[in-house]
């Protein structure tokens, strides 16, 4: 399973890769290799992390055709969407990415939810909750053990709330619609 997280520096993109990788390798006992990509000048701007999760040892260390792309910026979406595997899952932040073409798409207003919870900086963890519920690449238990280890202690509670928010958003949508929250129909029509 190949996953790419992409967005701007400062959105917790690399941290997201580390959290899922740690959950998968330390608590779910799978193999997980994470790589990050950034340019030579500084670590701002566009940023992405690539994670491979597998039952066996990972040899080739880079993601080639991701099964899941999580895009938290327009630039990231445009850059990495063409490489997404056919039938691969695309998850976007509803308010930050305008769609050109919808494939197997899921969207969540992660940044909006994070702001409602009090701090936009936890948008990535809202996204991770949604991602965990949707893809089941890692177990909820592993994620709930990993998040407190991966964030400053005074923000543990807030981050767990953010995780639940994203997780519940996915499960409630499944319950109410009988399917995961696909493209938001009104938004999809706009583009």
């Amino acid at each position: 399973m190949e996953i790419r997280f992409a967005g701007f520096g400062g959105q917790g993109i690399i941290r997201s890769g580390i959290i899922v990788g740690r959950a998968a390798s330390i608590y779910d006992n799978k193999f997980a290799t994470m790589n990050q990509s950034f340019g030579p000048e500084a670590r701002g701007g566009a940023c992405s992390s690539e994670l491979i999760v597998s039952e066996s040892r990972i040899l080739y260390p880079y993601v080639t055709k991701p099964d899941v792309l999580i895009a938290m910026s327009q630039e990231a979406y445009e850059k990495f969407k063409p490489n997404l595997k056919k039938d691969g899952i695309l998850i976007i932040d509803t308010d930050l990415v305008k769609l050109k073409k919808a494939g197997k798409l899921f969207s969540i207003p992660a940044t909006r939810f994070a702001e409602e919870l009090g701090n936009r900086i936890i948008a990535n963890v809202v996204m991770l909750g949604f991602f965990t519920a949707l893809t089941k690449v890692v177990s909820v238990e592993a994620m709930k053990k990993t998040i407190p280890e991966s964030v400053p202690s005074r923000f543990v509670e807030l981050n767990l709330k953010a995780f639940d928010k994203g997780f519940n958003y996915e499960t409630e949508m499944v319950k109410s619609r009988g399917s995961p929250p696909d493209v938001d129909p009104p938004r999809a029509e706009n583009f």
Partner: peptide, 9 residues
């Protein structure tokens, strides 16, 4: 760099 920046268990 690949090994240095690669995160694994």
């Amino acid at each position: 760099e690949c090994v240095g920046h690669m995160t694994e268990k």
